[in-house]
Design a protein around this nucleic acid. Sequence first.
DNA 1: CAATCATCCGCATTCGAATGCAACAGCATT
DNA 2: AATGCTGTTGCATTCGAATGCGGATGATTG
Lengths: 340, 340
Amino acid sequence: MPDVRRGDGHRVTSYDVARLAGVSQSAVSRCFKPGASVSKKMRARVMKVAEDLSYQPNAIARSLITRRSNMVAVVISQQTNLYYPEVLVQLSQRFSERGVRVLLFTLEHESDIDGLLDQIFQYQVDGVVEAARLSGEQIDLIDRRGIPFVFYNRSLKDRRVNAVCCDQTEGERWLVNRLVEAGHETFGLISGPEDSAVSVERTQGALERLKELNVKSVTVVPGDYSYESGASGLLELKNKLGELPDAVVCANDVMAIGCMDAARYRLGVKVPDDLSVVGFDGVGPAQWQSYDLTTVRQPVGRMTEAAVSMILERVEQPDLPPEKRTFSGILVDGGSARIA
Amino acid sequence: MPDVRRGDGHRVTSYDVARLAGVSQSAVSRCFKPGASVSKKMRARVMKVAEDLSYQPNAIARSLITRRSNMVAVVISQQTNLYYPEVLVQLSQRFSERGVRVLLFTLEHESDIDGLLDQIFQYQVDGVVEAARLSGEQIDLIDRRGIPFVFYNRSLKDRRVNAVCCDQTEGERWLVNRLVEAGHETFGLISGPEDSAVSVERTQGALERLKELNVKSVTVVPGDYSYESGASGLLELKNKLGELPDAVVCANDVMAIGCMDAARYRLGVKVPDDLSVVGFDGVGPAQWQSYDLTTVRQPVGRMTEAAVSMILERVEQPDLPPEKRTFSGILVDGGSARIA
DNA sequence: CAATCATCCGCATTCGAATGCAACAGCATT
DNA sequence: AATGCTGTTGCATTCGAATGCGGATGATTG
């Protein structure tokens, strides 16, 4: 089996193929471009040699001249939230079906994003999917670079940006409706991190609906989306109220799960008999029988598909106006909440 | 605030900076290279202009000439296994601390890997982390390209490749020891996918130790690493045996969790009183109080660190010989198994 | 003041593929 | 045989940064 590298340690280039096939480098290039003007004879000849040499066009060189890297940056923070890995995998799969690769940028802390934007730009990505918070100036920065970007589940109200969101408010309202219909009267809320727009929307959405429905007893305690904070949130609620509320509304599934476990194993309380718990997201473990969580599932498939096509459309047509697409969640009635 | 793009829609290049600063392009290039021969005056001057123009060196162009893309491909399959997202995030973070970015390749089916290798090569990545199965020919393919690569938790016995593994066999032996010491006499095993080397090692490891300890009643049923297959695996065991075994050894945590739920909610059996269940991996949910799983935790931090440094060392010194690094897992005694 | 040396800078080239343009071949038409 | 047309091919240039080499500059020494 022949070695694919030339003697000098360089990679195989289109010139090597051209020389061996007795044609010009441009011919080789054209052979690899679908729909280019090449005779079948030429193509066959070149492809044969290319095959023999295991030649693959250098995407880096191509990017330089075409000004398309076929790479998209995906920025993810919040690795504690089980929800994000799923989003990431789906984005990756959908992009790759369209010939685009994901360059991954993970943030340990959301504040690390400053230097990161510069990094992203250096790699000349064709677009950016942001599942992290950005300040107004940072958005300006991207905008001025003219790179299409889409926010995933976060958007700035007074800003014309592309965004794909799940309707957090609506989802919370559904959950509250269900709980109130079933006769729950005292409520505890465990919110997410203050700086998470999603969390704020969810908590506000629930509060608003509770108010509309004239529910008097509502207590909010802070959480951070983690299992532990769901558990400690419940204990804190009990402390504050002196007793448990009828229902606890958690800003995500993982906290709801932590909350259920604390109820059962630390307080010895039955869910849903003595306490109803609901979450949000619809992550895999929420369906596990130990939890069987009542929650709102985000339509991740449709949301990621939307994000991908919004980006790629704007790579082709940079002048498309900004767009926000909001998807309704799916109410999942589980066994973690008493129903009427 | 000035627009960072020139009138013609092109990006800002080192030539633009050079022109405005009244120096040569090479000077600009040198200013961005740490340790290059540039006077402080020059550097200050250039940096000022660069700042004004929001100039960032084009990593694509740089890669072309330096033959370093500062990108590493990470190939992941098996998205059902909760274990992999954690690995991915850690790899990404550790690489980025060293100035290297992760280009993500996800596989829906392990068989999709054929075309994928070509894709990976096109992007001129500096290295590859493989958390997917490869055939011998595929390894040849990578080898001949001279790209450093590391297998993560899979390796071919009779092949000189780089690999980072958790000692699956040893871990299973520990688990079996614990169970046998505690008096368990009849065993069920739920294996992972047949084509997963990890699963085979785990199951074999357990079987071997059980044999050594002279345990007679051992039944193996197949699983696929999913929650559902853990649940159905338990039912199948019961069918086969006519009754439940004393203990079920699952090839990963997620199946163990499915198994526990099936025991409790479908069979009405108490864990660990009537049935002991153990897993493998040490994923987050294994620690949730509803499960509190006895398992072997893979030292993901050390393993990913090892993978990263093995790759990067070989980018610098391509002649380093292949190396396999095997890490012991950490036995986690949870409440899902009766102990002596 | 001349000689020596280190430091710093610019010129020119390089990486590998894409593409506009011109040249050319082959074929049909008259 | 001359003309025109279509379909292919090659030439030359381009993308943007890095770098070896020679030359200029300035500092230092005798």
